[in-house]
Design a binder for these strands. Structure first.
Lengths: 207, 207
DNA sequence: GTAATTTTAGACCAAATGTACTAAAAAAAT
DNA sequence: ATTTTTTTAGTACATTTGGTCTAAAATTAC
C-alpha cells in the first residue's frame, strides 16, 4: 500500500499538470486522496515544498537518462532516441514548463537549479554537435558562432514544445511526444552534410 | 485626465505582466489606482473581461502593424524590421504568452481567436517564404513539406521567446527584443541560397 | 434647471484558503 | 509491555476573494 507522502506527490503532479499550480489548493489535493488537509501539511508545509519535491523527482529521472545514454555512432538515430526519452520524462512533469514563469518567480532556488540544468544541457548539445561535425554528419560553421546560435534555437524549442502542444494538440500523450520529438530532430536537417542528409532522409520514422 | 476604464486596463496589464494573472486580484488592481473595487467591477464584471479587453488591444495593434507593412524587396531587412516591431508589441502584452495555458484553459473564446491568429500568421510566413524562394533568396525544399516543418519551428519560437527571456534575461526591454529578433532571423540562414547567405552576412546589425 | 444616465463608493456576505493548535491513533523503538 | 516518535484528523481563526446591493455623486441629455 502506498504511503500518503507518495500519494500526495502523485496527485499533486496530476492536478498541477491539468489545472495549473495556482488553481490547486492544499485542501483539494488532500481531499482527492482522502486525507485531512492538516495531514498533508504535516508532510509538506507549503505547496512550494511539494513543487520542490516533484522537481527533485524530475532531476533524478533526467540524470538517470543521462547516465544510461550509451555511445552510438549513428548520430541521428541516437539523437532521436534520446530526444524521445527526454521529452517523455519532461511531459510527465509538464507543469514545470507551462508554469515556469510562476515557479521561478516564487522560488529562487528552483530558478537557480533550472539555470544550472540549462547550462548542462547546452554543453551536451555543444558536444554532440562537435562530434557530429567530426564524424562528417554535420557541416562546418558558415559564420562565427553559428552553432552557438543554433543551440539557442534548440534550447528555446526544448523549453516550449510542451506549451505549444497544450494549445494546439488534443491527441494522446504518445502521439504528442512523437510529433514534437520528430519536429525537434528536423531542426538539425539543414545543418547536415550531404552524407548526413542522405542518412536522414532514409529514416522512414521521420516522415 | 484619464478615464478609470483606461486606467484599469493599463494597471491590469502592468500587474499581469509582472505578477501573473492568478496573483492579481480585482481588489488589488482597484486599490493601485485608488478606486473602489466595486467601481472596477462596474467597468469589468470579471477579471476575464479585462483579459478579453486587453486581448482586443493586442489584436488591434497587431493588425495595424500588418496593414502598414509595406512591400519590400530586401527580404532579410524587411523580415528583421517586421520581426522587431511585432516582437515589441507582443512584449508589451507578454502575460498572454507566459500565461497562455492558463488563459486558454479559462477562456475558450480567447483560445479560438488565438488559433485563428496562428493560422493567419502561418499563412503569412508561408507566403513570405514562397516569395523568397521565387526571388532566389531562399533555396528550394530538400524534402517534401520541409518548409511546412520550418514554419512549425518558427511558430514555436514566436510563441516562446518571451518565456525564455523572462527566465534567462534581466536586461532592458529593448535589448531583449533586439536579441530575440536577431535570434529569430538567424533561424532562416541555413535555408538561404548562396546569394541569400551573402546578403545575410553583410548585415552588420545581425552580428 | 431638471430629469435621466452613468459612474462611484461603501457595506455586507458566503466561500475558500493558508495556517496554527490540540489530541488521538498508529507505528517504531526500547 | 511500555515508552517514544511518527502520522493523522478535527477544530478553529484570520484573511482574502469574488460578488451583490444600495445609495450617493458626477455627468449628460433635454
Amino acid at each position: 500500500m502506498k504511503k500518503n507522502k507518495e500519494l500526495i506527490l502523485e496527485k499533486s503532479l496530476e492536478l498541477f499538470n491539468n489545472q495549473g499550480v495556482a488553481n490547486v489548493s492544499i485542501r483539494q489535493i488532500a481531499a482527492e486522496i482522502n486525507i485531512s488537509h492538516s495531514n498533508l501539511i504535516y508532510h509538506f508545509k507549503t505547496k512550494n515544498d511539494i513543487i520542490i519535491a516533484l522537481h527533485q523527482q524530475l532531476l533524478d529521472k533526467a540524470s538517470e537518462l543521462n547516465r544510461e545514454t550509451k555511445e552510438n555512432n549513428d548520430f541521428i538515430k541516437a539523437l532521436l532516441d534520446t530526444t524521445r526519452k527526454g521529452f517523455d520524462i519532461l511531459y510527465q512533469y509538464r507543469f514545470f514548463i507551462t508554469e515556469i514563469t510562476h515557479i521561478t518567480r516564487e522560488s529562487e532556488a528552483i530558478k537557480q537549479i533550472f539555470l544550472e540544468v540549462e547550462k548542462i544541457r547546452a554543453s551536451m548539445y555543444r558536444e554532440a554537435i562537435a562530434n557530429a561535425v567530426i564524424q562528417g554528419v554535420m557541416r562546418a560553421e558558415l559564420y562565427e558562432k553559428e552553432y552557438e546560435t543554433f543551440i539557442e534555437h534548440i534550447k528555446i524549442y526544448s523549453d516550449s514544445w510542451i506549451s505549444s502542444s497544450q494549445i494546439y494538440d488534443d491527441t494522446d500523450t504518445d502521439s504528442i511526444i512523437e510529433k514534437y520529438a520528430v519536429l525537434f530532430i528536423k531542426m538539425f536537417f539543414p545543418y547536415l552534410t550531404e552524407k548526413g542528409k542522405e542518412d536522414f532522409l532514409k529514416l522512414d520514422e521521420l516522415f
